[in-house]
Design a protein around this nucleic acid. Structure first.
Length: 497
RNA sequence: GCCCCGUUAGCUCAUCAGGUAGAGCCCCGGACUUUUAAUCCGGUGGGGCGGGUUCGAGUCCCGCACGGGGCACCA
């Protein structure tokens, strides 16, 4: 038997290049459509999550068969044929189940159609639960439908997709091939849910403020600039939600939060994506100590939502260390003794610290010392408290420490995950801070805050004392899923064209 | 922006003083009615891009693109 009448492509001399693989799959789809104009159903309702079926038959013995009917839908990832029987593995987002196809059940025609499916095709199956002789929970295929043809071959469904560039540019392939990647993004969704659930349950109101802003602010960063054609004006993509949210405190909403994307026009790295997700929440009549307790509770809730079992200990209270003390311990530099830029620069040089001092302000150098010599050492969850006012234009002056503000940043796993202050609600003091920022900008600081008159007018209306927190969601996800690159927790990270 | 490393078949990986580039999976044909990356037989596919050196370049040199790591900056 030559078999050529069944395969018009047999004998062709060129096969298996990508165009040939696609051509074969397309030809199969064409034949299916030709044979049956209902070959590709519009829906396949009532399928059960595979994981639920598996858990239902944990106690079934090897070799036992049931007549319990189940319906599943998913992607075909493996096929093991053996004459009149075949085993196929189908994956949905919850798990993988084996199908047992038998010619005596399906008939010769349907059996041949099933075994001629390609790896990567989407199928729907009705069948009865059983546990195979080798012990695997399976479905005996009573009927099936091809739900969609995969014209392109999938990545290796056994070993997974390894090429980092392909994984990030074509995340759909990554999700098909790598179960742990699927897990990370399902966990990410749970973490976001837990954050919202915590804030909702504490009486915070979720709000949405402008992403396109006439004036950016609320953080020290360079913005993306865009243009509105009909308004004929420059607009900026927000770098933070801070200033609008505080205007809502003025408006009396008392507890507000926003969870969404911020955009910063800066470098890309394993810890930085140009667009990233931040939740900021503001609480009237609270200070930065209250805010710290909130963060501890929020992170704890997120950790339990994904059943975090890593090495970090989120038991409250987390460690606390003063900003100046942390730097002194890590570098020996006494910031109170080196209280101006030239003095601090001399100190950094004398101690042979690898930090650029040329043209840097005192605040930039102090911040640099923290980022370089303290932050990487903060593995266990830690609050660094009481920052220099130079670094914090929106934080209120410390109630007892001159020159410092009531601000903390929270670190874990060697990265910063949150930033908070007792908010500055004195309109006149805030006006002076903006003035100082204006001077910094004139001095060439590209990250200085623009002068925000509408915000100042809001403060002049009266803002309650308040604590505010910003949490980097991507970094929190990195922490709780044990990933060391932000690209592993952002579905489509920024890439070059 | 700078430095280092990488780029071989649809996927995962080999190979080599500069001398016709191999395997597994996938795909095609065949055998097998309980397989587990099933097995067995047969078959098909390739050096990121552009230059240079050389009789001959995947391999050496130069440039470019993209990716990864580090530095700078940042959350």
């Amino acid at each position: 038997m030559s078999g050529t009448e069944e395969d018009p492509g047999a004998g062709s001399t060129v096969r298996h290049g990508l165009p040939e693989l696609i051509g074969e799959r397309r030809e199969k789809a064409r034949r299916l459509r030709e044979a049956d104009d209902q070959a590709f159903p519009y829906h396949f309702r009532g399928s059960e999550p595979i994981a639920e079926i598996l858990s239902q038959y944990e106690r079934l013995s090897a070799g036992d068969e049931t007549e319990d009917k189940h319906r599943v839908a998913g992607r075909l990832v493996a096929r093991r044929e053996g004459g009149g029987a075949a085993f196929l593995d189908v994956v949905d987002r919850t798990g993988k189940i084996q199908l047992h196809a038998r010619m005596d059940v399906l008939g010769e025609q349907r059996f041949a159609e099933l075994t001629s499916l390609d790896i990567g095709d989407l199928i729907g199956v009705d069948g009865a639960a059983l546990r195979s002789r080798r012990g695997e929970i399976s479905l005996r295929v009573d009927s099936f439908a091809l739900l969609a043809k995969a014209l392109r071959p999938p990545p290796d469904t056994h070993r997974g997709l390894a090429d980092v560039e392909t994984r990030h540019r074509r995340r759909e392939l990554d999700l098909i091939a790598n179960e742990d990647v699927r897990r990370v993004f399902l966990d990410r969704a749970q973490i976001v849910r837990a954050v919202r659930a915590y804030l909702d349950s504490e009486g915070f109101v979720e709000v949405e403020t402008p992403v396109l802003q006439p004036l950016y602010g609320g953080a020290l960063a360079r913005p993306f600039t865009t243009h509105h054609n009909l308004l004929e004006r420059t607009l900026y993509l927000r770098i933070a939600t801070e200033l609008y949210l505080k205007r809502l405190l003025v408006g009396g909403l008392e507890r507000v939060y926003e969870l969404g994307k911020d955009f910063r026009n800066e470098g890309v790295s394993s810890k930085h994506n140009p667009e990233f997700t931040m939740v900021e929440f503001y609480e009237a009549y609270a200070d930065y100590e209250d805010a710290a307790a909130r963060l501890e509770a929020l992170v704890g809730a997120a950790a339990s939502a994904v059943a975090y079992a890593g090495e970090l200990d989120f038991t409250v209270p987390w460690k606390r260390v003063g900003f100046m003390r942390a730097i002194a311990e890590a570098t020996g530099v006494d910031l109170r003794a080196a209280a101006n830029a030239p003095a601090l620069a001399r100190e950094i040089t004398a101690r042979q610290l690898a930090l650029a001092t040329e043209g840097a302000s005192w605040g930039q150098m102090a911040d640099g010392l923290l980022a370089k010599y303290v932050e990487p050492t903060l593995n266990e969850p830690t609050f660094v408290l009481d920052y220099p006012v130079e670094l914090s234009p929106f934080a209120r002056e410390h109630r007892s420490e001159p020159g410092l503000v009531e601000r903390w940043e929270a670190f874990a796993g060697g990265i910063e995950i949150a930033n908070a202050f007792t908010e500055l609600n004195d309109a006149d003091a805030q006006r002076q801070r903006f003035q100082a920022q204006r001077e910094a900008a004139e001095g060439g600081d590209e990250e200085a805050q623009p002068f925000d008159e509408p915000f100042l007018q809001a403060l002049e209306q009266g803002m309650p004392p308040a604590g505010g927190v910003g949490v980097g969601i991507d970094r929190l996800v990195m922490l709780l899923t044990g990933r060391d690159s932000i690209r592993e927790v952002v579905l489509f990270p920024a890439m070059r064209d």
